[in-house]
Simulated scan of single mutants.
Amino acid sequence: MPESQASSVDKTVIAAIGFGGNIGNPRKTMARALALLDERDDIHIRTVSRLYRTPPWGNTDQEWFHNACVLVETTLDPHELLKVCLDTELALGRVRADRWGPRTIDLDVLLHGDFLSDHADLTVPHPRMTERAFVMVPLADIAPQAVVNLQSVADWSSLVDSEGIEALSRDGDWWLQP
C-alpha cells in the first residue's frame, strides 16, 4: 500500500462532540443519540460529561436546554464525523428552522484530534465554543486539559458566565440509565 494511503487507514483520533436539546425529552433523545453513535464500528464512546440544564443562548425566548459533551474514539475524518452527527440528528427528528432556536437534538463536532478548519461547511474548533458555558462547563468535566485557541478548556470554563447552569447528574453514566 502506498505510504500516503497507509497513514490515513484506521487512524484513531479523539474527538469531542457537544450535545443539546430542549424539545420533548432531551435527556432521552440525547441518550438515544449516544447509543446510536456507540453502536457504530467507527465510533466508540470514551467518556461522557455530566448532564446539565442550561439557559437558552442566542434566542432566549424558549425552554431551557439539556447539554452534555462526549469524547469519542473514531476512525472517521472530521467531515465524515459531522455527517454522522447530522444523520443522527435527522434520525431523531431534528428539524432545522430558526438559528439558535428550539430543537429536539443538536450534535456539534467541537474538536477532532489536532484538526483545524475554518471552512463554511466545518469549522473546528467549533466557532464561539469558548464563549458558551453550555459547551465549556461539560467539556471541562471530561477534557479539562484539552487546549483550544492556546488555552485549556478548564481555563475557558472558568471565564464563561455559567450563571443558571445546573448539573442534573452526578456523573457521565446518565445516558446508560433507563
Rank of each mutant, 00 (worst) to 15 (best):
W64R: 10
F65G: 07
H66Y: 14
A68G: 04
C69W: 05
C69L: 07
V70N: 01
V70W: 00
V70F: 00
V70H: 03
V70K: 02
L71R: 11
L71E: 13
L71V: 04
V72E: 02
V72P: 02
E73A: 10
T74P: 04
T74D: 06
T75N: 05
T75S: 13
T75V: 13
L76A: 08
L76K: 09
D77Q: 09
D77N: 15
D77F: 04
P78A: 14
H79A: 10
H79G: 01
H79D: 02
E80W: 00
E80A: 15
L82Q: 09
K83N: 12
V84G: 03
V84L: 10
V84S: 02
L86Q: 15
D87F: 01
D87Y: 02
D87Q: 13
T88G: 01
T88L: 01
L90N: 08
L92W: 09
L92D: 03
L92V: 03
G93Y: 04
R94V: 01
R94E: 00
R94W: 01
R94G: 02
R96T: 05
R96M: 06
R96G: 03
R96A: 03
A97T: 15
A97L: 14
A97S: 15
D98P: 00
D98L: 14
R99I: 10
R99M: 08
W100R: 09
P102H: 03
P102G: 11
R103K: 12
R103Q: 03
R103N: 05
I105T: 06
I105M: 04
D106C: 05
L107S: 06
L107D: 07
V109C: 08
L110N: 10
L110H: 09
L110W: 10
L110R: 11
L110F: 10
L110M: 12
L111F: 11
L111G: 02
G113A: 01
D114H: 11
D114V: 02
D114L: 02
F115R: 04
L116M: 12
H119Q: 15
A120P: 10
A120V: 14
A120L: 12
D121K: 11
D121P: 00
L122H: 07
L122C: 08
T123N: 11
T123G: 00
V124M: 08
V124H: 08
V124S: 07
V124F: 07
H126I: 03
H126D: 02
R128F: 08
M129T: 10
T130C: 10
E131Y: 01
E131C: 00
R132V: 03
A133L: 05
M136F: 11
P138C: 09
L139N: 11
L139K: 12
A140V: 10
I142P: 08
I142K: 09
A143I: 04
A143C: 10
P144C: 11
P144I: 08
Q145R: 15
Q145N: 15
Q145M: 13
Q145F: 09
